[in-house]
Amino acid sequence: MGEFFQGIADSFTKTFITEDRWLQLLKGLGVTLEITFFALLLGVAIGFLVAIIRSTHDMNLSNRKCHVFGDYVLKVINAICNLYITVIRGTPVVIQLMIMYYIIFSSSREGIIAAVLSFGINSGAYVAEIVRSGIMSIDRGQFEASRSLGFNYTSTMIHIIIPQAFKNVLPALGNEFIVLLKETSVAGYVALQDLTYIGNLIRSRTYEAFFPLITVAVIYLVIVLIISFFLKKLERRLRNSDH
């Protein structure tokens, strides 16, 4: 019995204490959070932009011909957005990451920037479809009421449509953020020392699989729980008007 506990204590020491490995894990967590945070910002920015372009096209041009020059511009931009969503959703994120790192950033090898860009661009495609579904779910009457007051298309989007759409898609967006956090675990493919990479590194150095892998899993889980907690809070605050 004593041997058993001694074994556990040894594995624990090897995993966390020797060579300050807990510090490595912490650094790995830092890298993971850094990539996730900036990719999130980028993904949301791209996502909303693409969603607005796509729904503007769908609401105005899907059942009529182009009249003015702007219509043709919108058509072309919409086609580009469609292509973007198709390509991003149709290829694995690991491949996108490696293309970004080994081809586009081949000369500089800026790992973090490559990762932020590829995860952000990847997430943007999904956010775009989520937000678009939110925009299209808003009753047309909301749009008409705003236009009838004299608001132009852009102001209507900003003051009336987007706030309601955002509220409706918040759960789906939250889910996408969680997915994004976990997807960054493949960052090790381009030599980034993120949480997963460090966990696996410790495993291979110590020949101890249990502690490193379970620890990494628990850390991800805790972060996801924290994100979920704040999302729920936000949802509740936005639901104020639904009494």
Binding site: V68, D139, G141, E144, R147, S241
Partner: peptide, 27 residues
């Protein structure tokens, strides 16, 4: 006339809808 700014004229034409169309996220 497509060259006029319809938004300016709509300000002076109020509209009331069958489905009310109040903005639900505002008081």
């Amino acid at each position: 006339d497509p060259h006029i700014n319809i938004n300016l004229h709509r300000r002076k034409m109020g509209m009331v809808f069958q489905q009310f169309n109040l903005f639900p996220h505002m008081t």
